[in-house]
């Protein structure tokens, strides 16, 4: 097992009295890709943003998020600013609104490259200045290269365009190019392709995973699209109402889910040959933050719920690297005794 790149341990995030993420454990090794799936409101985006320290002004964090040796929950503003867009970059969902309407794509890319690309960024002194006239040709060449890398066909035209002149797919490619500008070791993609059609989705994710793999970087892909996830990631973590329900190898887990919630998600997902009327949505809604307690939060909607589900969920190991927080579906091993610090299983390959 190599040294993990990102270690999230006993991590919780609350806004005021409401806990939106509860006791999260996740580990990510270099070169690995992890999918984070779950319904809207399950806390996926909050997790993504709190990794880079952008959960919001009122967020209270507990536990640790270790990036290599840096604890991101207690890191200084300066450290976080230099990590953001550098070693850790976040690619956002709504690309058009994430681009400044007042500047051309080229200008925004050159700014980000000048501040974040290892070959251009020269320490904190430049954080304010941006770039000068003399840097322009090199920055421009780099921007065009990144746009090509992101799969933009007419990079030159795009460079001079304003965001509103581009299609959704093109904007998202720009976002990818921007996210790659810092040559990140960890790329967090928060539903990067949700608003796009299937063909463009695949193209962009293909580019993304190619780049990440080539540089042996790690990918945290946040999505609610299980098809995409099974195609592009090695491991999966299923999040529900701020709790991890099940984590394991993506394909094995999706083929044979050991948590009723994962099973519910799969049954609610259409395939091309799904007969009409056979989709089964999960009844009910994600409990609101003020309805959450210490027990399994899915029990209100779970077909297999028992009285014991009101107790804090226990971890059941299915096999090495695959754990479910529900004992109702068949498992090969008995539950682990609740462990004090961190997960008792190894999640890194």
């Amino acid at each position: 097992m190599s040294q993990p790149l990102l270690q999230i341990q006993s991590f919780s995030v609350s806004f005021g009295a409401f806990r939106v993420l509860n006791n999260i454990h996740l580990t990510l090794a270099p070169g690995e890709s992890l999918a984070l799936v779950g319904e809207s409101g399950s806390g996926k985006s909050v997790l993504a943003r709190s990794i880079i320290g952008c959960a919001g002004a009122g967020a209270r964090q507990e536990g640790t998020v270790l990036f290599r040796e840096t604890n991101l929950t207690s890191a200084s503003d300066q450290t976080l600013t230099s990590l953001r867009g550098g070693k850790i970059s976040l690619m956002l969902q709504d690309a058009l609104s994430a681009l400044n309407p007042l500047y051309t794509i080229g200008r925004q890319m050159m700014e980000t490259i000048a501040l974040k690309h290892p070959a251009f960024a020269k320490g904190a002194g430049r954080a304010w200045k941006g770039f000068g006239r003399s840097d322009k040709p090199a920055l421009r060449a780099m921007a065009l290269e990144l746009l090509h890398e992101a799969g933009m066909d007419r990079a030159e035209e795009c460079f001079h365009a304003f965001p509103h002149q581009l299609s959704g797919g093109m904007c998202q490619r720009v976002m990818l190019a921007l996210a790659l500008a810092g040559e990140p070791d960890l790329l967090i993609a928060d539903e990067p392709t949700t608003a796009l059609d299937v063909v463009v989705q695949k193209q962009i994710l293909h580019r993304l995973t190619q780049n990440v793999r080539a540089r042996r970087a790690a990918l945290l892909l946040i999505s609610h699209d299980l098809h995409l996830v099974s195609e592009f990631t090695d491991r999966i973590a299923v999040l529900y109402a701020g709790q991890i329900m099940e984590t394991g190898p993506t394909r094995k887990l999706l083929a044979n889910p050991r948590h009723p919630y994962t099973r519910g998600l799969l049954e609610a997902m259409p395939k091309a040959n799904t007969p009409k009327g056979s989709l089964r949505p999960i009844a009910g809604e994600v409990p609101a933050p003020w309805e959450r307690d210490q027990g399994c939060l899915f029990r209100g909607r779970c077909p297999k719920a028992l009285a014991g589900c009101a107790l804090p969920p226990q971890e059941y190991v299915v096999e090495n690297g695959w754990a479910s927080f529900c004992g109702q579906l068949p498992h090969t091993t008995i539950p682990h005794a609740p462990s004090g610090g961190g997960p008792a299983y190894a999640l890194c390959s």
């Binding site: 943003r49 550098g86 956002l92 609104s97 681009l99 309407p101 980000t112 501040l115 304010w128 921007l178």
Partner: peptide
């Protein structure tokens, strides 16, 4: 959103 996004890209607060 674009200002938040710029911040999340690691561009300094100022």
């Amino acid at each position: 959103p674009c200002v938040q996004a710029a911040y999340m890209r690691g561009i300094s607060r100022q």
